[in-house]
Amino acid sequence: MIEMKELRKAYTTGKVEFEALKGIDLSIKHSEMVAVVGPSGSGKSTLMNIIGCLDVPTSGEYRLEDDPVNEMTSNQLADIRNKKIGFVFQAFNLLPYATAYENIEVPLLFARVSGKKRRERVNELLARVGLADKAGNKPTEMSGGEMQRTAIARSLANDPDLILADEPTGNLDSKSGGEIVKIFHELWSAGKTVIIITHDMNIAEQAQRIIRLKDGLVEGNGNLA
């Protein structure tokens, strides 16, 4: 599903150039569950953003389902983010003025799903993450766990094959975190490809494979027994 070769990403701040990814070779198959771990600043988020088509690499190759992402237009990338990838952030990134229902609806609007189908789909997703009774709540009226479940529901809106989560439990207490991890596990069981960045080894050990990053390079690529 994902193929990366010699992938590099450099950030330029002022005149200083900093290379966050220094040549990543990576291959992730369909229906895998992968945990990405590594010390802070090792390039995990940078890698995840590139996988999620939220950012572009400086050099190297990235193929998503055999399509070269490097060569895509911004509209094609937008459509991929809309339909093929669900991204869950540590900071939730919900629209602050919109309710849970409306936040989940956004990707469906961009996908031009008709009004009736939209309603059905949003309600289905709300039920799935256990938020049927919070449909009308805005982010400020929800707990962290509820916000993250809303964000997960939104990431699933157009039924993507690939779910990416960048420290999804980082801002949550362990109980809510546990619920969130459970959902990802269910998604994987249902056949989705799931990639989670985490600091929590308990979470990482639930994955099939752990990818370790250090200083912008993949350190280990072992399979869990």
């Binding site: 999620g52 939220l54 983010r81 809309n82 990134n93 629209l95 956004v106 961009f110 990431s155």
Partner: peptide
């Protein structure tokens, strides 16, 4: 940023 992240095209 949020809208683009969930698939909004620039033109929209």
């Amino acid at each position: 940023g949020i809208k683009m992240a969930v698939g909004g095209r620039k033109s929209y």
